[in-house]
Design a protein around this nucleic acid. Structure first.
Lengths: 223, 223
DNA sequence: TCAATTACTGTATATTATTACAGTATTCAT
DNA sequence: ATGAATACTGTAATAATATACAGTAATTGA
């Protein structure tokens, strides 16, 4: 006989069978685009639907899923599996830095670079931003929706040619300053029709594996 | 009256109403963890369930979804929406670089840095890798499963202290070379117990927004 | 103008799926 | 040893869903 009030047990440990039920649900949802019904779970687990029901209610009490009443396939998995990869603190920081407690963040690009929905990537070629630690092959994240304030690194179109430079505003003139003494700043008028700021550089990524470098060389040849 | 054979129309254009039905299905699935039933769609669209059915069959013929027979909520959307953000070619490359055809890749971190499942992130502090274009605040992707060959950038533990350096192998000795003339290489024996290579640096990401910099300063204070 | 497609309504029916009720048996902590 | 949670079986009622059949009406391309 079913007993009455069963208290909420957040973060309670799952039994082996409950874990198994959860795994079967996950597997089903990976293969099927819709959650399983009670009888489908019963078949998969070789048990009666009411046993399945008991398990689902237990899993609900333990906060790993939610059952929506009177809805077919009304199972909602909570705690959506963390998608990102772990990010540890500074180098050099503390000694046992590769521990669970030292994960200061999880890698999730949009959150990291806090960009709008219009961000796009752009590969860098040339050494004009060398002193800003930006090299050929680097991938820049450019956000058109971020305000291009003085001092920010921007991507601009000068007479149709895209370039990455520091932005420097002085009255009605705008200077596009490279981070390399070898090159001179480009000075244009604020209202120059041949000049347009595409977006602000909000992030950067660099691949250090040979495969990517080869790919970039191929791209270079193709262009 | 329903007419007989209706040919497959892959890539056919959706009518306005069909597009609307698809949008409602997408919206429902974003909010609900399970696909909608016919009557739920009927309610949302203010039409009879058999009208919904007709639309679903039309969408099925046009290959945008699949209806699984005799299965409640048996709707499977095809052509899963592209998750990544677009990545354009080199800068400077061609003039109209922000066009659909110039998307050379889509941003998806794991594919980009071609790393194992054990990659982790690590923030950099200090200027010892300055000449390799790596600065304080940069986030390194370190892969413990990549072979630490001569010349690669590695994260090593020297007497418990983690450091980022170039790896240089010479016979039985290993040199950890900084990319900054201000600092001297660390030379250790191959079998030194106080020395361990944690992983190879396979990628790097840099955030250029102020918020992140503030966060990093806070982390610095806390450590 | 004719066939095909689109866009619906309405009633009915079969199937699918959830819920309810009534048990049995085991384990586990107090 | 007693209450509570776990782990099941079985039958039945009810609600939720999908499907079938029979239409109507407007639009579109050949």
């Amino acid at each position: 006989m079913k007993t009455a009030q069963q208290t909420n047990q957040k973060n309670a440990v799952l039994t082996k069978i409950q874990q198994n039920v959860l795994n079967v649900i996950r597997e089903f949802m990976e293969n099927n685009s819709y959650p399983p019904t009670l009888s489908e779970l019963g078949q998969a687990l070789h048990i009666n639907i009411n046993a399945v029901r008991d398990h689902l209610h237990a899993l609900e009490r333990k906060q790993v899923l939610r059952c929506i009443p009177n809805i077919s396939r009304g199972i909602e998995l909570l705690h959506a599996k963390p998608e990102g990869i772990p990010i540890y603190g500074f180098v050099p920081a503390g000694h046992p830095f590769m521990s669970q407690e030292n994960i200061v963040d999880t890698f999730e690009i949009r959150r990291y670079i806090s960009a709008s929905n219009n961000v796009f990537g752009l590969y860098v070629r040339g050494d004009s931003m060398k002193d800003a630690q930006i090299a050929t092959g680097d991938l820049l994240f450019v956000d058109p929706d971020v305000e291009a304030r003085d001092g920010r690194m921007v991507v601009a179109l000068v007479e149709g040619e895209p370039t990455v430079k520091w932005l420097q505003k002085e009255g009605s003139t705008i200077s596009l300053v490279p981070a390399n003494k070898k090159y001179k700043p480009i000075v244009v008028d604020k209202n120059d029709e041949n000049f347009k700021i595409v977006g602000v550089v909000v992030g950067m990524i660099r691949a250090m594996d040979k495969l990517r470098i080869d790919k970039m060389v191929n791209l270079k040849k193709a262009s």
